[in-house]
Design a protein around this nucleic acid. Structure first.
Lengths: 303, 303
DNA sequence: TTTTTTGTATAAAAAAATAAAAAACAATAG
DNA sequence: CTATTGTTTTTTATTTTTTTATACAAAAAA
């Protein structure tokens, strides 16, 4: 089979439940109506109707599609084993790359990896092509892929780029008028930070989502598709790493809370230089943490 | 044929010239040596040798590959019509999108476009997948591609992003020590600018490459793979537009030269604020020019 | 006996072929 | 004349096929 008939099978099931709800002897609506209801093309509707006529579920002649009997369990059509959805592939691949010590420079085998992640090869191919934009993998001159890997150098450059984007966001933010919704957002975040700081000994795990919320609030003031796109990778990678590096987690998070509060304070003051300085300090810490986690996970050799 | 045998044909030709230079009756080197010489795998070498044995050019038995006769014109193997190289596709596609009024939201037909640009469909597919990273095209939920197009909004966001990156570069640059090679580079560029300014009435076309050289010199001080990657698109798009918009070209370029010189001057002074200000002014002009060229080309409706 | 070279098998990537689904068009019933 | 169906054409997604690369074992030469 060249192309999966998942759409057909899905439509088959859907229409079966529609018929089950309808009365025996009644007529089905026109093909176009069914197509719109099931969100498929008329071609597929007709294929399903033909199948139903074949098993004697309906009588179909011209524009009369009469239900002959209630569908039984035998009429069901099993879905063929599905592949992984795309975001699950993303998650699993990143986990594989970042988590395990896949050394930089490893050649990737599309066919084998596709099997491993149970996706069709061309899906993996496209995924890799997307990743190559972020410099995590590269196409080899004569076919094949190379895992460039998440090296210390990569982490440094990523952190620096993050700093460029985020400091820009800070500069934009301080200049925003008091009526802008971001200020209310920051006040709410401040309260959450203070709240968490009070119970940090127990709930230091709760910091990770708060960190994400804080940074995405700040960067949200820059409405730029290019910035947003990169923000996605940055969040992804930082987020993944924080999840795994459990050393000193409590102290690290406590310190970060303090830095976040300092940034909020500086932003409120309207002093651009102060705000930039506070943000830069935090980003430096963040970079160090990322690098330390790399060394800790032995992805790179300890010095 | 599933895969092109270009490699085989190329190796065939290469080995033919090797044989033509060698003496009749002499033996060819081992397969591995030939493979290394021709930069192909042994499999392909063997395929070519088999072909040569078939046409009676060599006698091949075991490790003896004796040249029987000099190759004649008939022995040549024509290359099959080649597809476009990848960068030519890039050029042509961008030209098509940016130049002609392909409206935003046009669904793209991979098969048809592939024919039009004379590339295999999967090459175009991959190319589109790359472009989707820059937000010029997007994958439709149920298969197919959508041209998001080079709208005014896109141009604005691109310009802003460019400004973020370039102002960051300027901040890095002013802090560099006097011994850094960038200063010599800037001095050379300054001379070229002054030279061009003197003969701008005639040679205003020469500005485009100089502009590119100037901006890439400034951004080169930031050694960051993410920045570099975006620089590529930015250069591409700005460059394309400048090429076509011929209105006011002389005046525009003369003004830009002045702005460039002002930036160099401010950079030399070591005053960060002044340098940023000069660069920001130039980037604003640049953005306006890009937007004006969009309106001029009627890609978007004039206000 | 060791090294070099070849023969064979296996694997992988790219392009063509092909089936499914969508869209367009024409015909027909109401 | 409009709404719906029948039919054909396009288009996309996946599999199959073919070419190429690599790995391993066997044989020849040093």
């Amino acid at each position: 089979m060249a192309r999966t008939d998942d759409r057909f099978r899905l439509a088959y099931q859907d229409l079966l439940t529609v018929i089950a709800k309808a009365e025996i002897g009644s007529d089905l609506p026109p093909e176009l109506t069914l197509a719109e209801q099931l969100n498929i093309s008329r071609t597929t509707v007709r294929a399903v109707l033909t199948a139903f006529a074949d098993i004697g579920l309906i009588a179909w002649e011209g524009r009369k599609k009469t239900i002959l009997r209630a569908p039984s369990g035998q009429d069901k059509l099993a879905m063929r084993d599905e592949y992984l959805p795309r975001d699950e592939l993303e998650r699993r691949f990143l986990q594989w790359v970042l988590r395990f010590d896949v050394p930089a420079g490893t050649p990737l085998n599309v066919a084998k990896l596709a099997k491993e992640f149970s996706v069709p090869p061309h899906v993996l191919q496209e995924f890799l092509s997307g990743l190559s934009q972020f410099g995590l993998v590269a196409r080899r001159p004569r076919g094949g892929w190379l895992l460039l890997g998440f090296t210390a150098e990569y982490a440094i450059e990523l952190s620096e780029f993050r700093a460029v984007l985020e400091l820009n966001a800070v500069r934009v933010l301080v200049a925003l008028p008091p009526g802008h919704p971001i200020w209310a957002q920051l006040t709410a975040l401040e309260a959450q930070h203070i709240d968490l700081a009070a119970r940090i000994d127990r709930d230091f795990h709760a910091f990770s989502p708060l960190d994400e919320a804080f940074h995405s609030a700040i960067t949200s003031v820059v409405q730029n598709r290019f910035v947003k796109q990169f923000q996605k990778v940055i969040t992804l990678i930082f987020h993944y790493h924080y999840q795994w590096d459990k050393r000193m987690e409590r102290d690290r998070n406590a310190a970060a809370i303090g830095e976040h509060l300092a940034i909020i304070h500086a932003l409120r003051s309207g002093d651009e230089a102060a705000a930039v300085q506070a943000a830069a300090a935090h980003l430096r810490t963040s970079k160090e943490t990322l690098l330390a986690s790399l060394r800790g996970n032995a992805l790179i050799a300890p010095e």
